[in-house]
Every structure is written in structure tokens, then in C-alpha cells.
């Protein structure tokens, strides 16, 4: 269960303050697949950063499984990221120095799991994404789609309750993109809550629920029509 209430995020520089999010409310139930859409600069990434505990909201409350997490210290937030949240990024964000196994190993290491358990989880995760034969390749030796599957395997290996995906198909061709989406659907079917940020309108509402952002706020139905009418996309 993820609940955000009155979330605001203001970036300040010497000269100006930018309201990236304001009065943002969102509640996501366990097992949902939510897509978050909106034009560039609408606050999608800020939302994802706050949801993923990478940034603190300026104001408002954020509860994860009923626990207020917005103002926890760094160590506690790191633990929640590690144990409850999985990330998938548009540009995969694999660590180029590490091979496939070591990349998937990263979150497991920070969780302090014993070696045997880590190996098992890595194997299982690679099995799910269908890359068991590539475990010792470096990211640079893989295609974009394979890299994204490794990134998904890395997120899965931690068995997160929430999977946050930031334009997971943005750098992929359509065939690979649909493979990745199919994979996410499977994961969601297993019970993992997925929140996917995208501005690919064909994916909007893919998992059954769509949240639209406009100028840092939840878009009203009127806005939605405006958006549809102007055909905002990439």
C-alpha cells in the first residue's frame, strides 16, 4: 500500500523556486499496475524520485505500507529502497564495470544476504528474464533489450513489493518493448505492485489504472481531454 498526501516538491536556486509537484495525492493498492503519464516537465520524474525515496518531498506525507517514510534518515530509507522497492530505468542504468551476475548482485549485497541465497536469487531472476546463458557478459556486450531485461532481473532478485519503472521501453524498439511489457505483466500477475512512468500514450492505462500529471499536479478530467485533444506525446 502506497499513500501520498499533499505532496509538494519545490526546487530552489538562488534566483527562483520551481514547484515540481504540488498538492499531489495518490494511493496505490497492493498488486495494482499504475501508469503515470504527462508531458515533459509535468513532474513525472520528481514523483518517481519521491516514490522511490531518492528525494524528500518538501511538504506532505508519504506512507509505505502504513509507515511514514518521507522524513526517515538516510540509512532507514536506503533499507526500504533495498527491501521494498525495485527500479527500472529508461537507460537501464547497469553498472558498466560489473558483469550481469554482479549487477544483479548489487541490491542483494546491500541486503546482506548469505552467498548461497544470493546465487539462487540471481539464477532465478535470470531464468525469469531468459538470460541464464549471459550471466558473465558485461553490459556493453548485450543488446538494449537484453540490458533492460538484466535491469528487470536486478529489480526482481530483490523481490520488491513495489516496482518503479521510468520509461522502461523508451530506448527499445517496439518488439523488445512489448517483450519487456509482457515481462512486467507477468511480474504484476505474481503480486508485485508496479508504477510505471511513461509518455508513450499507447501504454497509458496499460495495467488498468492511469494517473496523469500536468504542471506538477494530478490532472483533472478536463485537463485529460485537453491533453488528448492536443495529442501531447514525445
Amino acid at each position: 500500500m502506497l499513500e501520498m498526501k499533499n505532496i509538494a516538491k519545490i526546487y530552489r536556486t538562488e534566483a527562483i523556486a520551481t514547484h515540481a509537484l504540488r498538492d499531489f495525492d495518490l494511493s496505490v493498492a497492493d498488486g495494482e499496475f499504475v501508469t503515470v503519464t504527462g508531458p515533459s516537465g509535468s513532474g513525472k520524474t520528481t514523483f518517481l524520485n519521491i516514490a522511490g525515496l531518492l528525494e524528500d518531498p518538501t511538504d506532505g506525507t508519504y506512507k509505505l505500507d502504513g509507515e511514514e517514510v518521507g522524513q526517515l534518515n538516510d540509512r532507514a530509507k536506503s533499507r526500504i529502497r533495498n527491501e521494498k522497492i525495485g527500479f527500472i530505468f529508461q537507460s537501464f542504468n547497469l553498472i558498466p564495470d560489473l558483469d550481469v551476475t554482479d549487477n544483479i548482485d548489487v541490491p542483494l549485497r546491500y541486503r546482506g544476504l548469505p552467498g548461497a541465497e544470493r546465487s539462487k536469487r540471481i539464477r532465478d531472476a535470470l531464468e525469469i528474464v531468459g538470460l541464464a546463458s549471459r550471466q558473465h557478459h558485461l553490459p556493453s556486450q548485450l543488446s538494449g533489450g537484453q540490458q533492460q531485461r538484466v535491469a528487470i532481473a536486478r529489480a526482481l532478485a530483490g523481490r520488491p513489493r513495489f516496482l518503479l519503472a521510468d520509461e522502461p521501453t523508451g530506448n527499445l524498439d517496439s518488439e523488445m518493448a512489448s517483450q519487456v511489457i509482457a515481462l512486467l505483466d507477468d511480474i504484476n500477475a505474481q503480486g508485485t505492485t508496479i508504477i510505471m512512468v511513461t509518455h508513450d500514450m499507447s501504454l497509458a492505462g496499460h495495467g488498468g489504472r492511469e494517473v496523469r500529471l500536468l504542471d506538477g499536479r494530478l490532472a483533472s478530467p478536463d485537463d485529460a481531454e485537453t491533453l488528448a485533444a492536443t495529442g501531447t506525446g514525445v
Binding site: G52, L54, D74, R75, S78, R79, R81, N82, E83, F87, N93, L94, I95, P96, D97, V106, P107, Y110, R111, R154, G158
Partner: peptide, 15 residues
Amino acid sequence: PHIGIRRALGASRQA
């Protein structure tokens, strides 16, 4: 940038 990824995956500042 790699540090950023590690942080996202659950590494604390101390780690």
C-alpha cells in the same frame, strides 16, 4: 553515476 545507481538499489551513504 554508478554511485547513484547503487544508492537507488539500497546503498546507504555510509555504505
